[in-house]
């Protein structure tokens, strides 16, 4: 298929520029193959994060011709060969070097989310019973491979910089950007919370977290996250919107508030999971 030019961003947090490389393109090749070929033959210090090269680990996220993609799942035959293929690091996150960005902030958000806590076992042998149709819904969310492409394109994070900046040791730096209280959790962690909130066995209420710490209200449902998800998770429709409804019911709906108070007075336990909605 011949030689193709790859225009790859090289640099670090102090700045950088695009460098052109030529690589031989063969049938079925993906962008990550070209990056590896360039690494092995022309630029051994070209930094790029990758692991499985099979679309399963979510490490090789980058922007290819301006589109946020997994490089291992972007076939060369889907890109024009007569112009340079532009490869840049994810824009929303701080640069480490070349195509590698600092995504450590995501791990700190994840740690804020209270872990799964199941109801007492259903059977004497310590096990539970759940129907497949009850778990179908959260199995969709649990397909997430944490590529953070959704975080990268979320305009609340990307354009309004509603996430913390970190120093090289991964600590939140003070004085820059929004305060911790104004941070937005981002789509990845909305669906992570959704996978817990809609888990048939879970007993923890994470709605206050969603409202106050992850600031779910900042999402205005533009669905950019859903569009880039390599696992085709319906992040907005099946995850964020139902969570927003729950938050509204919990904190802003006077009828629900009254009903809850009556229920509490009567000792009625709240139902945690909503009825199943087929995607």
């Amino acid at each position: 298929m011949g030689k193709v030019t790859f225009r790859i961003w090289r640099g670090d947090k102090s700045g950088g520029s695009f460098n052109d490389y030529q690589a031989e393109v063969s049938e079925g090749m993906v962008v990550l193959d070209a990056v590896h070929q360039i690494q092995a033959t022309q630029a051994p210090d070209l930094a790029c994060r990758w692991n499985c090269k099979a679309g399963k680990c979510g490490s090789c996220s980058a922007e290819v011709n301006g589109k946020p993609r997994l490089m291992c799942m972007t076939r060369m035959d889907t890109l024009p060969h007569d112009q340079p293929v532009l490869i840049q690091p994810m824009k929303a996150f701080p640069i480490i070097r070349d195509l590698v960005t600092d995504v450590s902030w995501n791990y700190r958000v994840n740690k804020k989310i209270p872990p799964f806590k199941p109801r007492p076992p259903d059977a004497p042998d310590g096990t539970w019973r759940m129907g497949q149709e009850e778990v179908d819904r959260i199995q969709e969310f649990r397909k997430c491979i944490e590529c953070f492409l959704c975080q990268n394109v979320c305009h609340v994070l990307r354009d309004h910089r509603r996430f913390g900046q970190t120093d090289t040791d991964g600590n939140l730096t003070s004085g820059k950007g929004p305060s911790e209280a104004e941070l937005f959790g981002g789509p990845r962690f909305m669906i992570r919370v959704a996978s817990l909130e809609m888990h048939p066995l879970d007993t923890v209420n994470r709605l206050p977290l969603l409202q106050k710490e992850l600031n779910i209200g900042l999402c205005n449902i533009t669905k950019c996250c859903t569009e880039v998800c390599p696992e085709h998770i319906h992040i907005t429709d099946n995850g964020i919107i139902p969570l927003k409804e729950r938050v509204v019911d919990e904190f802003y709906d006077p009828l629900m508030w009254a009903a809850r108070k009556v229920g509490e007075a009567l000792g009625i336990r709240r139902r945690k999971s909503l009825p199943i909605v087929k995607p």
């Binding site: 096990t127 759940m130 129907g131 778990v135």
Partner: peptide, 20 residues
């Protein structure tokens, strides 16, 4: 395996609701 379920893993299910 049962421990994983207690930690939140969501395995596919049998018709009677156990781990498939």
């Amino acid at each position: 395996v049962r421990e994983l379920e207690a930690w939140g893993a969501v395995f596919d299910r049998t018709p009677d609701g156990r781990i498939l």
